[in-house]
Amino acid sequence: MSTKANAETERFDDVSNVLLLSSSMSNSESEACARLLDDPAGAHALFCTFVESPADRLRRSGIDPGAFETTTVVDVESVTRSAAADGVAGDGSTFPDGEARYHVEPVDDPTDLRELGTTLGRFLAPVSGDGRPLFCFHSLTDVLQYTGVETAFYFLQVLTDQVDRAGRLAHYHLDADACDRETVATLEGLFDVVIDLRDSDPSVQDAEG
């Protein structure tokens, strides 16, 4: 039993965990990401990035980190990137007065999901604020490259439960072309909603069905 609805008009009031399936970083993926991070006034935002630097990831999401009550980026794999890639003048990481627009929390070992989970957990704890707390995880493609599907599944079972308990609206990016169909189908059941951006007409599927 799956319901289909237009992603543009779908509301996520009763949803905690959304799987965003794409084929590559396309416009529709950025749009969907931005939509799931909509209405930042008073909200606390948490990001997790692997390949891209925090500044690049925030830019790709099309959001202004300064518009949130707080913005935190858990930065995995930062050691493998050039140190100069981040924190340079004009990259948007600071306000004109030099104050940081967002907080970066490094996680050095991308294979250590326990460390990553615990770090994310610290920032996922329930927070007070006017808006609903938000979470963008980019991406499951990277997690699957570092660990097997079974480990990724266990990691996500705990993470999605925590997101749900904290009342967050979270979405998780996954490049469906980078893994086999069975892997995608195995993971789908962990999410409340699956948005498949590979269709020209984006659809929302009820993953619980």
């Binding site: 996922l124 705990v158 439960d161």
Partner: peptide
């Protein structure tokens, strides 16, 4: 699907009694 839904509920119940650090530790073995 029925069995999966039952397990989903039971896992959520179990996690309600574990803190997340402990949950990650057990889940990731």
């Amino acid at each position: 699907d029925d069995r999966l839904q039952t397990l989903r509920d039971e896992l959520a119940d179990a996690l309600g009694s574990l803190d997340y650090e402990e949950a990650f530790e057990i889940a990731l073995d």
